[in-house]
């Protein structure tokens, strides 16, 4: 861990301003991912702006009938919230399938969206990784990539986004609210929030320099059966091999996938084909997939999951 300076911001806008002004700044919230990466010197911020004390820890109803989740709401609290459990159960289920109770007690809503990939080469400083050292190459492409991405990849990066929460937010059409260093705010649809790797896999979101997530808006509830199925290599405390967040009801379904791409994967056009069955959905949803011998199983697995979820929802 490199020596760094630390400050607590007084307001979200101040936090954003400081982060923009101080070179090498990072926000620190729960720290469950950032601190590990700092110890490994994969992240080497010179300055940490603590955003834990900015009043961003509330869950409030919105005028539109939805919920506004403060960026600092802990994963544990969000999963346990009565309104979330009642109206957005897929989110609650996704959260509870991630990490451990101890980590969820610390991890925040904003931080969860910003967690870095778990690609093993990202974690090994002696090996090339375009995400860690832009331009150094991608060791994963010809290496151990069983759990890496099959959709939206590039020849620079095949990392996945490890979040479960984000997959549920994607299926719920959440929007991410931010404040910028100049004090302006904006809302970014979750579909656009995370980027595909392209030629710049180290740039993972649409956030500008210093821009701080202040909250996540959920639209009014949409009913239906809420399902989060996470396929993993052990019963708990493992990142998804493939996951599916689904809201299903007779005749309609929303389907988002985790573990397949650099961002939660959802293709609305595929959802229109649910009446034709999982194979039709998968054909459209997974068009353009690029697999390796090790991770090719993810596509049939995702299709099986889709079929199972559609059956559960009597779609």
């Amino acid at each position: 861990m490199k020596p760094f300076t630390y400050q607590r911001a007084a307001t979200p806008a101040e936090a954003a301003r400081v982060a923009a002004e101080m070179p090498g700044s990072r926000f620190i919230a729960g720290g469950t991912n950032l601190l590990d990466l700092m110890k490994l010197q994969i992240e080497t911020p010179g300055h940490l702006v603590d955003v834990n004390h900015l009043g961003l820890d509330r869950i409030e109803p919105t005028a539109e009938g939805g919920l506004r989740i403060g960026a600092m709401v802990r994963n544990t609290d969000l999963a346990a919230d009565k309104r979330v459990r009642r109206d957005y159960a897929v989110l609650s289920r996704a959260l509870l399938s991630g990490a451990s109770a101890q980590l969820r007690n610390k991890a925040t809503t904003g931080g969860n969206l910003l967690q870095r990939t778990r690609c093993p080469y990202f974690y090994e400083p002696s090996k090339p990784c375009n995400k860690r050292v832009p331009g150094s190459g991608c060791a994963a492409l010809g290496g151990f990539n069983r759990n890496l991405a099959v959709l939206g990849t590039s020849d620079k990066c095949i990392a996945t986004h490890p979040s479960d929460m984000a997959v549920a937010m994607r299926v719920l059409d959440a929007t991410v609210e931010t404040v910028s260093p100049d004090g302006t705010t904006r809302s970014i649809p979750i579909a656009d929030f995370h980027r595909l790797p392209g030629d710049t896999p180290h740039i993972e979101t649409q956030l500008g320099r210093g821009e701080l997530i202040t909250g996540v808006m959920l639209p009014a509830p949409i009913g239906g059966l809420h399902v989060y199925r996470k396929v993993r290599d052990r019963a708990s405390y493992a990142f998804a091999v493939v996951s599916i967040a689904a809201v299903v009801a007779p005749g309609r379904a929303r389907l988002a996938y985790g573990g397949l791409a650099h961002k939660p994967w959802r293709v609305e056009a595929a959802e229109a084909l649910v009446a034709d069955g999982a194979a039709a959905v998968a054909k459209t949803a997974f068009a353009g997939a690029r697999t390796t011998p090790e991770n090719a199983f993810k596509l049939p697995l995702a299709q099986r999951l889709t079929a199972s979820v559609l059956a559960d929802g009597k779609v």
Binding site: P120, E124, G143, A238
Partner: peptide, 13 residues
């Protein structure tokens, strides 16, 4: 390659 307890899986509770 998988040189930590997140990636080298042993059974959990």
């Amino acid at each position: 390659v998988n040189h930590d307890l997140a990636e080298y899986h042993v059974p959990v509770h």
